[in-house]
């Protein structure tokens, strides 16, 4: 297992380098001048701007800048935000748990509803239940999470005041308020995940149920629970895992807008502020964060593949 993790990490080094390099290159193309911004905007004297530029290393050649950033990043130093002057690692440490609680809640909801709907539909493809569930998933996939978020606010925060419309309460401050503040954003985000997973599981299950080894399981005298729950589901989960990983990745994108709508101080809000203010080190830091999350995700996918499908298990 340790070997697998290590190999996976090594394999992702080129991807990580490529991705961060691309972001770095992109940022240097930004029309604004970071040094100018930092020195106090349009009113700054040219001397002050030059001083700041030197201080930030912005006068060095592009590759040197990237190398310096890489060196810092490998020691856990991502620099300081131009806008706030705080260390980026500190700011990330505050934003990450906020996003994580929403995304995790969305993932759990999505899995719960997605898998059960998928199994119900996949067991009887073509039935009335199946058709209505498939119809629901089509809607779930088509409705953007920010539209869903607004509808949820309208229904449950404006008309019925069950949940707060905006804001975030830390778990440590009040678990109940935390739960309330997380519920609506998590539901808004989970719709797409649930729908995609349901569709995958349904299609895979319907397919697997027609396979030779399922016939063997019936022929042995297996009960429905055993044949579907044991023999079919483990195999049907394989394609769903891939989609699930992709969905979690896109959840992070969806979280960007949903956090903005609910005014939640998570990663999304943080990167959006960074982008709008052209806060170079912030964007760079969040980019690295996303790449790391991706590494962890694909690792998890690999591990679950190994569990579900012994054929790909690495010896």
């Amino acid at each position: 297992m340790a070997h697998l993790i290590l190999r996976r990490l090594v394999a992702l080094v080129p991807t990580m380098l490529l991705a961060t390099f691309a972001v770095f290159g992109l940022i240097t193309l930004v029309p604004g001048d970071a040094a100018q911004t930092l020195a106090g905007g349009d009113n700054a004297t040219p001397e002050r701007v030059a001083e700041v530029r030197k201080e930030m290393g912005l006068d060095k050649p592009f590759l040197v800048q990237y190398w310096n950033w890489l060196k810092g990043a490998s020691h856990g130093d991502l620099g300081k935000s131009l806008a706030s002057g705080n260390k980026i690692t500190t700011e990330l440490r505050q934003a990450l748990p906020v996003s994580a609680s929403i995304v995790l809640a969305a993932v759990i909801l999505g899995l719960l509803f997605g898998v059960s709907a998928g199994v119900l539909a996949g067991m009887r493809p073509g039935s009335r239940l199946d058709r209505s569930l498939v119809g629901a998933t089509t809607l779930g996939i088509a409705i953007p999470s920010f539209v869903a978020a607004m509808v949820l606010i309208l229904l449950f925060a404006v008309q019925r005041r069950w949940f707060p419309a905006i804001g975030f309460t830390k778990f440590s401050d009040s678990p109940l308020q935390w739960l309330k503040s997380v519920t609506l954003p998590a539901i808004a985000l989970s719709l797409g995940v649930a729908a995609s997973i349901a569709r995958q599981i349904r299609a895979a299950l319907a397919d697997v149920l027609g396979s030779a080894y399922i016939r063997t399981a019936w022929a042995k005298g297996g009960s429905t629970g055993r044949v579907v729950g044991k023999h079919a589901l483990k195999n049907a989960a394989i394609p769903a895992v891939t989609v699930f990983a992709l969905q979690v990745g896109s959840l992070l994108g969806g979280a960007l807008i949903v956090e903005n709508i609910f005014a939640i101080p998570g990663l999304g809000t943080y990167v959006l502020r960074g982008v709008l203010a052209l806060d170079l080190p912030v964007i760079q830091g969040v980019a690295l964060m996303f790449v790391l999350i991706n590494v962890v995700l694909s690792l998890l996918v690999d591990i679950s593949y190994g569990y579900l499908n012994p054929k790909v298990r690495v010896s």
Partner: peptide, 18 residues
Amino acid sequence: DAINSFPGLVSALAIASV
């Protein structure tokens, strides 16, 4: 893979902002 390691919206946002 490198492009894909960011969610579509994030990379689009980054490019649009540049």
